[in-house]
């Protein structure tokens, strides 16, 4: 017994578990446990200055029967869907260029250039779009100073661009662009280049080789890019607040209002869990459709 225990302690699995346990414990305590807490609180009830720890479905009923919640949820999903479509469509040619158009020693430099804006203050980048699109902002004042906007110009009044779904979508698409490029790039890099040569040797045109070989093989990257952009954008707080001017709230703004100023944490939790479930369900449907589509394609 002792010998067996000792050999297990020296075994590869035991060492692996020993090494992984500090980060794993940290994630359990500060990620998994808090998420479970949200779930639990979504079934509690808010009393005055305190929380009543009794099981109730009231928060969920209130959430789903509230037309405002439904409008905000639909808006969040629509904006996130639009942003995902724009970012992935714009990102694909970039990823393709990085993978097929560049010498190997140039790739790292380009990827670095693309990722820099992504790491630099998200808040400031969003705020800059407010400055760019504002009524007295960069675009309007630039058009005014060259005479396009004004009493004698083509357009009489400055353009009203802020506080719209389009402005929110543009800002988010700009913020999440690198998120979409990297997964597609990784899947393109994995493609065996001889497959493409084979396609062309067998008489396919470059375009048809792209459609029938490259694109299907790049699909895992496209799927990953879609989810990696869609899920965080549904839950974005800063952009609707700054670019939507507080008039176009999305789910995160609703949650923040419940958690902090209104101090109804069970309600905030129920909204978060409800939204998360909808996003998870949509993601699963997307993955399932994709698998089906790819199978039929073969």
């Amino acid at each position: 017994m002792a010998g067996k225990g000792e050999s297990w302690l020296r075994s590869e699995s035991a060492q692996g578990y020993a090494l992984i346990s500090p980060p794993f414990l940290y994630a359990v305590l500060l990620l998994a446990a808090p998420l479970v807490t949200i779930l639990a609180y979504s079934f509690f009830q808010d009393g005055y200055l305190t929380v009543v720890h009794e099981f109730t479905l009231q928060n969920y009923i209130a959430t789903w029967t509230d037309p405002i919640f439904r409008v905000i949820l639909v808006r969040s999903l629509f904006v996130a869907g639009l942003v995902t479509l724009i970012t992935v469509a714009l990102a694909f040619p970039i990823a393709y260029y990085l993978s097929f158009g560049l010498a190997p020693n140039q790739k790292a430099r380009w990827i670095f250039l693309i990722t820099i804006p992504f790491w630099t203050s998200y808040l400031i980048r969003v705020f800059l779009w407010k400055v760019i699109l504002g009524y007295n902002g960069v675009i309007n004042s630039a058009l005014e100073s060259i005479g396009i906007i004004g009493p004698n110009g083509l357009i009489a009044d400055p353009l009203q661009m802020l506080n719209s779904v389009g402005a929110i979508a543009l800002t988010l698409a700009h913020a999440y662009a690198p998120f979409a490029i990297l997964p597609i790039f990784v899947s393109l890099e994995k493609i065996d280049r001889s497959l493409l040569e084979a396609g062309q040797d067998l008489g396919e045109s470059r375009w048809r080789t792209f459609l029938r070989v490259t694109l299907p093989l790049a699909m895992p990257g496209v799927v990953a890019a879609t989810l990696i952009v869609f899920i965080p954008t549904v839950g974005d707080y800063v952009t609707p607040e700054l670019i939507g001017g507080g008039k176009m709230p999305m789910v995160a703004n609703l949650i923040q209002a419940q958690m902090l100023p209104l101090d109804n944490r069970p309600m905030g939790s129920a909204i978060a869990v409800s939204s998360l479930l909808v996003v998870a369900a949509l993601s699963l449907v997307f993955l399932w459709l994709n698998r089906r589509f790819l199978k039929v394609g073969k």
């Binding site: 990620l31 990696i228 965080p232 839950g235 974005d236 707080y237 949650i255």
Partner: peptide, 18 residues
Amino acid sequence: ILLPMVLPDILMGMSLLL
């Protein structure tokens, strides 16, 4: 451990607050 890469940050913020 890698989950926060895809989760919206607000979930981490609100759950830790709670």
